[in-house]
Design a protein around this nucleic acid. Sequence first.
DNA 1: ATTTCTAATTAGAATTATTCCAATTATCAC
DNA 2: GTGATAATTGGAATAATTCTAATTAGAAAT
Lengths: 140, 140
Amino acid sequence: MSLTSHDALTQKLAGSGLRNTPQREVVYAALLARRDHPTADEVYARVRPELPGISLATVYNCLETLVQCELVRAVNFERGPTRYCPNLHPHAHFHDNASGATYDIDLPADVLARVKAILPSGYEVEDVEISFRGKTLAPR
Amino acid sequence: MSLTSHDALTQKLAGSGLRNTPQREVVYAALLARRDHPTADEVYARVRPELPGISLATVYNCLETLVQCELVRAVNFERGPTRYCPNLHPHAHFHDNASGATYDIDLPADVLARVKAILPSGYEVEDVEISFRGKTLAPR
DNA sequence: ATTTCTAATTAGAATTATTCCAATTATCAC
DNA sequence: GTGATAATTGGAATAATTCTAATTAGAAAT
């Protein structure tokens, strides 16, 4: 992990009164290294070579912590396992039926605004999730 | 269940080469009767008085069948159990953090079109899901 | 440096929602 | 009615996640 993302992590954690740890570092680094929306199991497999003693429970804990301090987004698609995404820009997700892959789709601010505007008054939105399902024609 | 929804069900099922059954009838009727996005367990509880011998597995089967023939939508929110919705108009969902309730939010065609338009070419969309999370101010 | 306090991690058990399976029952076409 | 197929059933199995109690590590205070 680069110095800046290490610092960003430490700082964000401190902001929530949490410590940085080797486990949180490698989990976050794994998400940054391959942004293919891995599951907790996949993250576990990727960090074990780096930190062989880490447990799956800790991977779950670290991922949850990263979601809490808003460095990572949890992505759910139908009944599949939760996937994790370090992309903090507003974006939607596209799930390829055939391959099971998940792609980030940039979400322009004006479209996001239009979507939020469909809510009647009295609904106070904290989070919006937009996901597509379909097939992709060319390799991405 | 009204005569027309009975017929609609029988016809839709026939269209997919499937039979209508007492189990499918009561499950569909339960969804139409209370449109509060029940889980499979909740549907099971609601149909048992009507059809005491029905099994939970059958409730799951019926719900899946109804989703397949497009009379019902399956709604997933984060890691919660799947909920079921007989509203076929294009709509989004709003999840109230406090109560856990799910509300349908009408989705105008132009907004849906704008959302679909964020996809680059090469992405062929089959389904869009938009969900909000937040709190509601007044009782709905 | 040691103690102390709390946070974080760990291994494994438990839970939840769902799916699978093999056996029975119901229905349709003939 | 008979045979073929679809649907249902109860219970076992599964997958992902969460919980729990015990241990370890780190920071702060002495």
